[in-house]
Amino acid sequence: MGEQKRKEDIQTDFVFGRKNYTFMLIGLGCIALGFILMSGGGSDDPNVFNPEIFNFRRIRLAPTLVLIGFAIEVYAILLNPNKK
């Protein structure tokens, strides 16, 4: 009976709160979107140069989204879930 009581007293607590995990998912979505926007733009023929790889979306927008996503991840880790 004593062993069963000890099992009931033990609670499993998560390291982060619900708010932390929500921000982590948002940050992960931003990172994934940035990498998706960065992909493509290649050429099927290696002798033909495709200038699409140097457009605004791949050079500025996508890396910015990835960095914003990493910043959100850092914020999610440092966020105190007990603070209202």
Rank of each mutant, 00 (worst) to 15 (best):
79 L>A: 12
46 P>K: 01
60 R>M: 02
58 R>I: 02
70 F>P: 10
81 P>C: 11
68 I>G: 01
79 L>W: 04
41 G>D: 04
5 K>M: 09
64 T>P: 00
33 L>S: 13
72 I>A: 01
20 N>C: 09
54 F>K: 11
5 K>L: 13
9 D>Y: 10
4 Q>D: 10
66 V>E: 13
10 I>S: 00
78 L>I: 07
33 L>H: 11
5 K>Q: 14
7 K>V: 05
26 I>E: 13
83 K>M: 04
4 Q>S: 09
1 M>F: 11
4 Q>Y: 14
48 V>A: 05
52 E>H: 13
31 I>D: 08
67 L>A: 05
38 M>I: 00
81 P>G: 10
69 G>V: 10
29 G>W: 13
38 M>S: 12
24 M>E: 06
60 R>K: 00
69 G>M: 03
8 E>Y: 10
10 I>N: 01
1 M>L: 07
7 K>T: 03
19 K>I: 14
75 Y>E: 06
80 N>E: 06
11 Q>A: 04
17 G>F: 05
80 N>Y: 01
25 L>P: 08
60 R>P: 00
83 K>L: 02
34 G>R: 01
51 P>E: 01
13 D>K: 08
66 V>S: 12
44 D>P: 00
54 F>G: 03
67 L>K: 03
69 G>A: 09
75 Y>P: 07
54 F>A: 13
30 C>I: 10
40 G>Q: 08
76 A>I: 11
78 L>N: 08
37 L>P: 02
58 R>Q: 08
14 F>M: 11
12 T>Y: 09
71 A>L: 15
71 A>N: 05
16 F>A: 13
40 G>L: 06
9 D>E: 14
7 K>P: 00
77 I>D: 07
75 Y>Q: 03
72 I>K: 02
21 Y>L: 14
39 S>H: 11
4 Q>L: 12
47 N>K: 10
59 I>G: 03
36 I>R: 09
3 E>C: 00
24 M>K: 04
9 D>A: 07
53 I>N: 12
47 N>Q: 12
22 T>N: 10
67 L>S: 05
26 I>H: 11
3 E>K: 06
14 F>H: 09
18 R>A: 14
55 N>I: 05
38 M>H: 12
70 F>Y: 06
33 L>F: 14
72 I>H: 02
65 L>Y: 10
22 T>G: 15
35 F>M: 12
38 M>K: 14
1 M>S: 08
66 V>Y: 12
9 D>I: 07
67 L>Q: 03
47 N>W: 13
18 R>N: 11
73 E>S: 09
65 L>S: 02
81 P>Q: 06
51 P>I: 03
11 Q>D: 05
53 I>P: 06
33 L>E: 09
66 V>F: 14
44 D>Y: 06
48 V>P: 07
82 N>D: 13
24 M>C: 09
7 K>D: 07
63 P>Y: 04
75 Y>S: 07
64 T>K: 02
68 I>C: 11
6 R>F: 08
